[in-house]
Every structure is written in structure tokens, then in C-alpha cells.
Amino acid sequence: MIGFIKKDIAVMKSNIKILVLLTLLYVAMGIFGDMDISFILPFMVVMVMIQTFSYDSFNNWNAYSLSLPNGRKNSVRAKYITTIIMILIATIITFILSCAISYLTTKSIPIEKIGFTMLGTVFGTILMLVLMYPIIYKLGVEKARIAIFIMVFGLIGVGGLLLSFIDLSVVGKTLSFLEGYIIEILILLGILMVYISYRISLKTFSKKEF
């Protein structure tokens, strides 16, 4: 599987300049601006990883990968592992930069707040990954983009409708016992979501023929 991870990283290398530029933009915004864009680097890492699916399809890599030992399983597994590693690296870099900006400027943001923002960013990008990858494996990158667009708006619509019927204060009281375990819940939920998403993607890719 290491070979498949190396392949995705090799393909990503062509986008390294964009990621460096975004990091510089983040530093500049952190020093001179007021807007918090600490999500930008992990988010862009996922977008760049999605781009690797386009390269795989365009260059017929998918068919060739299936001729390699454990090609089906390793292809899918490598995509998930590479993306998660990249998200974590991007988050750690952003965390360090945020702490440095906070220390070097007059903003003095508490480290806990930076940590929570980063945790939210990791959860958000993982959510993107778990939703998008099975759809990409099923439909390909181009159709998946449209499907995700429809899905997000659908979820917002359904969510909005549900919220109009639900009394949030009652829900808040019912779930108040979970308050001290937010980090653990997010981590467990993240792992569970990644596992389910991976299984769906693997099953979809196992049926694909090129």
C-alpha cells in the first residue's frame, strides 16, 4: 500500500506551490487581517487530493492499479490514509502558525481556542472526505461534484425544515450529559464515519471495471 500512497503524494507534488501560497496567505491574513481562515489549508489539501482522482481517471491509472498486487484494496485504502495524513499535517502546520501569530502579534488568542478551531476544521474536512469519496468512486469526480452540490443543499433544506419542528432547548437539555466529552465524541464519530465511508468506497471500487 505504501506504493499507492507514494503515487498520490507524487501526483500532489504538482500542487505544492498552491498549498505554499495558501499558507503564506493565511499567515498574511493572520497578521494583518481580522478574518479567521485557519480552515483554508486542510480544506485545500482535501481539494488537491480530490484532484488526484481526476489524474487517475484521465491517465488510465485505475485499470493499471488493478493489475498490481492487492490493487483494488490498496488503491482505496491509500486514498483515505493519504488524505487523513495530509489533513493532519496541514492542521498541525496551521496550529503552529496560529500560535506563532497569536504570540507575535497583539491578538493573543488562547491556545485552547486555537485547538478547538483546529479540531472543528479536522472534523469538517473529514466530513467532506467521508461524504465525497464514496460518491467519487461511484460517479467519478465530475459527476460527484454535482451530486455533492445537490446533497449539501438538500441537507440544508431538510435540516432547516426539521429545525422548524424541533425545540432546540429540549434537545440541548437532553444531550447536556455529553457536554464534557465533546473531543472524545468528535474523534470517535470521525473514526466511525471514516470506516463506514471506506467500506462503501471499497465495495463500490471492487465492482468497478475499466
Binding site: K6, A10, N59, N60, W61, L68
Partner: peptide, 24 residues
Amino acid sequence: VLDDMFFPEIITPNDINDIMKGVF
């Protein structure tokens, strides 16, 4: 060797060496 080209065109022969070390 498949009929169509199959390596991503933005990688190099050195990358292929690294990749295949982790495959075979």
C-alpha cells in the same frame, strides 16, 4: 503493459521507482 498509457503524466521515472518499491 496495457494498451493505453497508464502512468500519471506529471510524475517522473524516479517517482515510479519509489512507487514500485512499495508495490512489489
